[in-house]
């Protein structure tokens, strides 16, 4: 089996048109042309859109998780319906719904324009995914914790916010960081809503650059920038998980 691998690699090296590959994917001139905009506009927008969607999504997720654990049946039903709906749909559909569907149907404008619609749409999707994570985190906090707090006279709400949630969030930091990595990649869907030169994120920026100069190097650059953002995050997740496993 090992020999087979060696043969395949050797064939690829022998038969590949390396000059052509280098010119189209690793063209230094093209790379130089992309700077600094690829960082100051594209990467910056990708990070900005991610952080905004994550922040709004997190608040929504917390509300949904509490609703799903509520003793009030209609709250539970709403949370379950919401989570199943938006996890079941492609994120692209939700983005188009918020960016075009709702504005057309009700003749309204989403605050923040296309970026606002994109952030809102992605937040809605992120909230659905993160709600389940947070709910699991809350349920992972031992029952004795809330019993101790309640027996000290704390109300149910105070117990949730001062005793249970701080512990739950510690538990879900690794999976939430994973969620953020997924969000970073999902910001590439923003292109369907239309962009201006200043609102392009990495994928759209690279694609437009590529079409303009008819060379694929921008894709390589975009890929490297994505990895520069996501790899440290996934590394962080691994470290956090290891640390959590050790403290148990």
């Amino acid at each position: 089996m090992y020999a087979l691998g060696v043969i395949v690699v050797a064939l690829a090296i022998a038969l590949g048109d390396w000059e052509r590959i280098a010119f189209n994917f690793f063209n230094l001139e093209v790379m130089a042309d992309m700077f600094p905009e690829v960082l100051t506009i594209a990467a910056r927008n990708t990070i900005l859109y991610t952080l905004m969607s994550f922040g709004i999504g997190l608040v929504g997720a917390l509300a949904l998780a509490l609703m799903k654990l509520s003793s009030i049946a209609p709250y539970r039903a709403f949370a379950i319906g919401y989570i199943e709906l938006f996890r079941g749909l492609p994120a692209l559909i939700t983005l188009i719904l918020i960016g075009f569907g709702i504005p057309i149907a009700f003749d309204i404008r989403i605050p923040g324009g296309r970026v606002g619609a994109g952030v809102l749409g992605l937040s809605i999707v992120a909230a659905a995914y993160m709600a389940e994570t947070i709910r699991a985190g809350i349920e992972a906090v031992p029952r004795g914790q809330s019993e101790a707090a309640r027996s000290l006279g704390m109300s149910a709400n105070r117990t949730m916010f001062t005793i249970v949630l701080p512990q739950a969030f510690r538990i879900v930091i690794p999976p939430l960081t994973n969620e953020m990595v997924l969000l970073i990649k999902d910001t590439s869907l923003f292109f369907v809503l239309g962009t201006t030169p200043l609102t392009k994120e990495l994928t759209k920026f690279a694609r437009d650059f590529m079409v303009e100069i008819r060379n694929a190097t921008p894709l390589t650059v975009a890929a490297l920038v994505y990895l520069a953002i996501t790899l440290p995050l996934t590394w962080l997740v691994r470290r956090l998980e290891k640390k959590a496993a050790m403290s148990r």
């Binding site: 004795g144 019993e147 101790a148 704390m154 001062t162």
Partner: peptide
């Protein structure tokens, strides 16, 4: 419940808080 102290088999101290904070949180909030 503030008049009734309760001690559990599993202690149930709040692990994310220092000993001092474990002892003050209900005093200040409740």
């Amino acid at each position: 419940r503030t008049r009734i102290g309760m001690v559990f088999q599993q202690f149930n101290l709040f692990p994310h808080l220092s000993v001092l904070k474990n002892l003050t949180i209900a005093q200040t909030k409740v």
